[in-house]
């Protein structure tokens, strides 16, 4: 693979405030602040009128009602024009019957994609890779996923992450591997010896040892 000399870029990190933007979209000009109070999934795709991206947009549209029930908005992005986005979503609706209900940023000057680290020159110098930024209702970045150009995203995993994060926020717990709603959750481990001794005797917990205890919500 060709090597690229690139300037170091400061990428957004988990737990930090999401970078502000004021962007042209298919639903008019939108700012990050417009989404305050809702969770937001900001995701990028390489280009309009491409096959994997089309399957992903259909899949995002299909999970849109499930996301809305969880207070989550969707916002797409690529380095294409608004006219291209409009033509593409109209084409998707005409050919598949699926209406794309969420806005898409036309990031022609790459202002948003560079701020979010969505362009990975090793994959493409001109297109954004398949990024997913899950931003909470206080505009803090809670999850970042990167997928290569060739791999379409898994929508059920995105919903699962939202459920896990919202469960963590509501109950002060963590979620184990492959957790799904209804499964037992992980209780934060104690940080004192006394706490450890009490933990293993806790009647409501299922403990492997003091540091790994689960409970049913």
């Amino acid at each position: 693979m060709e090597e690229y000399q690139t300037k170091p870029v400061s990428l957004p990190r988990l737990g930090e405030k999401a970078p502000d933007f004021d962007a042209v979209t298919t639903h008019g000009n939108l700012k990050l602040d417009d989404f305050k109070g809702n969770w937001l999934i900001l995701f990028s795709h390489p280009a309009d009128f491409t096959p994997v991206c089309t399957t992903e947009f259909i899949a995002f549209a299909e999970i849109f009602p499930d996301l809305q029930k969880r207070g989550v908005e969707l916002l797409g992005l690529s380095v294409d024009s608004v006219s291209s986005h409009i033509a593409w979503v109209r084409n998707v609706e005409e050919k598949t019957g699926v209406k794309i209900p969420f806005p898409i940023i036309a990031d022609l000057n790459k202002e948003v994609s560079l701020a979010y680290g969505m362009v990975h020159p090793g994959q493409s110098k001109t297109e954004t890779v398949r990024c997913v930024f899950i931003i909470d209702d206080k505009q803090i970045i809670r999850t970042i996923l990167y997928y290569p150009l060739s791999t379409g995203r898994n929508m059920q995993e995105i919903i699962r992450i939202i459920d896990a994060l919202q469960t963590t926020d509501a109950n002060g717990v963590a979620t184990p591997a492959n957790w799904k709603p209804g499964d037992k959750v992980v209780v934060p481990p104690p940080n004192t010896q006394e706490g450890a001794e009490e933990r293993v005797k806790h009647p409501g917990y299922e403990c492997v040892d003091w540091y790994l205890c689960k409970k049913q919500l």
Binding site: H27, K31, E73
Partner: peptide, 9 residues
């Protein structure tokens, strides 16, 4: 109407 669209509008 979605909150973000109201703010933008």
């Amino acid at each position: 109407v979605a909150l973000f669209r109201v703010r933008s509008g």
